[in-house]
Design a protein around this nucleic acid. Structure first.
Lengths: 334, 334
DNA sequence: CTGAAAGCGCTTACAG
DNA sequence: CTGAAAGCGCTTACAG
């Protein structure tokens, strides 16, 4: 159905070798030969078979992105979706096509798939178990993690300086006058949620407005719904404490909690200030718009691709942790 | 680096053919041979090279998803991101890996990439020019469109019954008592926006509360920002008209407009009701939550994959338009 | 039931 | 500068 190099060669009156040379641009080819070949290629809309090329060159020019989730698969995740976009944008000019899969954090399915497909490299997003990492590592395929949770120093990680961002949040709330602060913390098994909380707590402690443990509510998940649920569960206690501000370790939790508060007639920010973390699109769109700590999703995605490309080409990592700077974004809720 | 069938064969003491037979499950293999081969495969964590398999079988088991956008590339699009998720979920159990690319609507780049990669099939999302369609068609690769704009009856389309949804919206607003309605219409070159508007207008006309042309504001884009902008541009006229309800041809426009209204101190829904279309996640999360017409994104993505799979396997289309039913979702803004 | 051979569509040395 | 040959890692008839 599609033409092959052999047919092009016949029609152009040259050998397959010559056709290959003009296509790849490697090796010599006379102007005349080149012209004849190009004409045929044009006329037939010939497209070299990337599968065959990959077979001989041992390079597929494909990379795989696996997004690990405990819940249902989500490429449309408010944060990871953005990072995925950045990855797609960065991969294209480098000539990579990208496979996207979502998977459970404990599963090896996606990794197996990608390995069989012989991707040139792998980008792993979010938390995943060490056995998954070990498994992938054992195959010698270049890979790196975005926003991952691992204490393995060997794996290359692209992360946000979440502890610093937590401090930024605490500093801001303190700066605008808040002393009685409630925190909703997402799953502490996740690096991000853990560090953000630690950063906040640390700053508050050092600055003389420590947040007592019973003012930190644990949210079972990092979703809008979980934020809503968590605050509603603690509602009576929350009222009794007369907090003036609420910090959540991500925007979705913050927004969920804020919606609940507003439904109870609480005014934001006049009665209570609210602050999140991530700067998802939704944060700017909400009414009132959410003050937050911005994560540089574009940079994270881009750096991941650039670094992976280097790993693919040289097999050595220039550095094994890229930290992205968090940024305070003040909006209407504080 | 990775093992080959040849090495497995040697270690198992059989021929490559036998190894191939046990891997594929095609053809005969004695229990004994099978056992020996499986042991070696286990021990070495051998993974068949999908590239080589694709080369001989002429099936890559890869499909491509191209999302066309005029703006920047967005897999994190509130609607298309969801559809993409559904595609990923549906593709996996069928053994397909999926390439994701975003592209300008006039560009052939992504299509070229996919064609070179020899994907088994293509899913095209959103509007794209006819020349792109013609181009892809000329290569004989199975493809279909989700939410596309084309008058070409030949191309297989997965669409929402947008005209019907428009009627649903009009009916609902009418039902709860609104007669003076303002509409913000997204780009009319898009099938969805066009049909939604027509459906609404038609119902209103037939039911005795026609919406005059000057009560229909054109939004230059289908984004939150565009909705916000559009209403603010028409603000004085809007106030003069004393509308009681606002319908936008998608949620993002509706939400953008609604935020502007709330910023002006307008109460929703007591002073003005607002209604959107799509049921993006944000709609349910907003405060107040947005009444809308739901698009069955999961079904659209799933149907696309299922249908594409049939096209790939049989080369004949059982039907060339799948229509998904819109659904009225009443929330707090009406 | 099993192995040798051919072939998928390319690229890459190697002669000429 | 150009062509014939070998080979990438598989699968698929085809003998045996």
């Amino acid at each position: 159905m599609a033409y092959t190099i052999k047919e092009i060669a016949e029609m152009a009156g040259v050998s397959k070798s010559t056709v290959s040379r003009v296509i790849t641009g490697q090796g010599y080819a006379s102007e005349e030969s080149r012209g004849k070949v190009m004409n045929v290629i044009e006329a037939l809309q010939y497209k070299p078979n990337a599968v065959a090329r990959a077979m001989v060159s041992k390079r597929t020019h494909n990379i795989g992105v696996i997004i690990y989730r405990d819940q249902q698969p989500v490429a449309s995740h408010p944060l990871y979706g953005k990072i995925l976009d950045a990855i797609l944008s960065a991969a294209e000019p480098l000539g990579y096509s990208v496979f996207v899969m979502t998977d459970q954090e404990m599963s090896l399915r996606s990794a197996d798939f990608m390995l069989e497909k012989r991707v040139d490299g792998l980008i792993l997003i979010s938390r995943l178990r060490n056995n998954v990492i070990e498994y992938i590592k054992s195959f010698g395929v270049p890979y790196l993690m975005i926003n991952g949770t691992t204490e393995d120093e060997e794996v290359i990680r692209i992360v946000n300086q979440d502890d610093k961002g937590g401090e930024l949040a605490a500093e801001h709330l303190h700066h605008v006058g808040h002393r009685r602060i409630c925190i909703i913390a997402g799953p502490q098994a996740h690096r991000s949620h853990f560090l953000r909380l630690q950063g906040f707590l640390g700053f508050a402690e050092r600055s003389g407005f420590p947040v007592p443990p019973d003012s930190v509510y644990q949210s079972p998940a990092s979703t809008f719904e979980a934020g809503y649920e968590t605050i509603s569960r603690h509602w009576s206690g929350f009222c009794r404490r007369r907090y003036t501000a609420l910090f959540a370790t991500n925007d979705m939790i913050a927004l969920g909690a804020m919606k609940f508060l507003m439904e109870q007639g609480v005014r934001v920010p006049s009665q209570i200030a609210v602050m999140g973390y991530d700067d998802v699109d939704l944060a700017a769109m909400y009414h009132p718009s959410l003050t937050t700590v911005g994560v540089d999703k574009v940079k994270m995605g881009r750096e991941a691709v650039l670094l992976l490309d280097r790993l693919i080409n040289s097999e050595q990592s220039p550095l094994n942790e890229v930290e992205c700077e968090p940024r305070l974004i003040i909006r209407e809720t504080t």
